[in-house]
Design a protein around this nucleic acid. Sequence first.
DNA 1: TAGAATGAAAA
DNA 2: TTTTCATTCTA
Length: 631
Amino acid sequence: MQVGDDSPTTPMDDARPSRNLRKSGRTQDARSTSVSSPAERTKREELPSPALTSPRITRKRLASVVEVVDGEDSVENDSPIDAPPSATSTGSLDFAGHVCLCQPEPKIPRPRNAFILYRQHHQQAIIARNPGLNNPEISKIIGEQWKAEIGEQKKVWQDLAQEEKVRHHEQYPDYRYQPRRMGKPGSSPLNPSGQHTTVEKYRCPRCGGRSIKTPTSPFLDSLGTPTLPPTLPPPNISEGLTPTTRYLPVMSNLSLESPVRRRGHGPSNLSNIQVTSAMRDDTAMYSPLTPNKKRRFDYGPPPSGNGRRPDVPYYPQYARRDSLPPIQVRYSPPNSAGIPHPRTPRESRRSSVIELAPPPQSASPKTVEEILGAFPYPNKIKLLGRIIPPYKEHGLENPASLKNRGAIIAVEGDELAPVKELSEWLYDYLTKQKEYSPRIAEPPKAPEESNKDVSFEDYLDLIKEWHGKSKEMINYITTPATAQSEDAIMSDKGFDKETGERKDSATPPDSPDSPDPATTTKPVIILPTFQLQASVAYASRIPIQDAYSATDHWQWMATLWRGTVGPDLTIYVKTYDAKEGYAGAKPDMDEAVRCLTVFKEKEGKFVDADLRRVGFEVNEWIQGMGAAKSA
DNA sequence: TAGAATGAAAA
DNA sequence: TTTTCATTCTA
């Protein structure tokens, strides 16, 4: 395949769709579809490639469509000659001038096995510790590490792999692993099912042989019908949308044959179909067509991702431990020192980076609260994450503190009770780990229920208060745990965790294997609700007096937290009604957004396995932070 | 495009 | 049992 050229830095490559295969028609979260897309786009955004972000994306997108088309299938190209390879993996000169409207199916990758997941997960940490190491070396190290891993840990990964397998199977019931045997001609991995080849050469099984002659628009779906209303594409495609966001509508119900991942250019075909941002969905992503594999995201659980079960692509999306994408939220220009500078209502219409507007089909809520409630929480969290990033230590002035750098974990959610419950569970869990000194902190005060009109001053007071607390929190998480004392901000009251153990100040516990206890426990602050809850609560209660939309109103309010420290990780408790279709949804870690979603049925309890998973994820997360830091 | 690890699945 | 491929990305 294209050598060097397609190296990771290639813009084209970066831009490659990372959409999941069968996205079309699937709505993992009815409401989040349009919005969510930006949410995970992060992944790509985070790519350091300036090429990606700089130029007008609108143009870029279009251009890339053309490029792609040109390069491989030329659905749009007039030159029939280069049309073929994609449509059928076999030749297709006969097709001169005709192009099957169906998107060739992308190759369906095998589910990842436990080790691959494990490797993926640890890769960044290893690189952090050993900069410059090449992948084979990394593989060796991780292989060793894997072998050294205790059974219990391995089990976790095996379970994860098993989950992935199941999900894979659910999503691609017809999938069958068909490795290419070297000797056998015709057994192209690109065409596992064998269909779409010779016999079917002229007749695509999907569209019944429909083909057209050099179509003029790329916006066609598998049936040749326009996928986009003429109105959509250009403008909206907004900036945060790398061509990556293209995805292939086709995938839904086809047999998975002939992926056609030809050598040559990576992009290949599937890209000629464009999708409106509203159609995009963020949960899915990964691009099978990528020539050189781009990350598919770490171990990924969420069978149900953020959405309902069946709709979710089986791949979770997130880039492990990568650095976060640059902020692109466009308000608060550099020069606006004081009050943040929200987007104007009008601007928000086309905003792109993080789309907050609720999808059109949502049942037109009325109150600000309802509107905000209708926003997909990942988007809110993502936005908050950009406004209020986690603490980032700069200097190496104090390596010790770096090493001991703890974490701030926000537990957010629709309902307070489960949020508290999970917070306390986490507290217990971390306590038991012996490596942490967790504390449950008092969250930002919610506006008084009784107080009809919450004033803006109230909110500003709160913000001010938290600017102070913010410093204390930073101080807390950067101070070796054993040196901590009962700390001012950490008034655990309210969430009395005192079910017995007063872990902390008496911490210098029996540390069996640690010569220096002070360096072995990491301070962790758990906030049962934090900025998300506070910003939404206040935005809902402070009346909008001007032209701001509810979302802009919230964004503006959220921006006021700027300058305070944000959580390193947000755990979002998604409570659902039994009939909502989330049943069985597993915790979903979205690394790009730094959010772990935990599902809980409204009337039910947290599932033990889910809790374990939360513990595992948090543990991994904190460790990963450390690893990345100490690099 | 090999390579480096482990493991699942197919031949 | 052997082979392929799942991931990652540099040389």
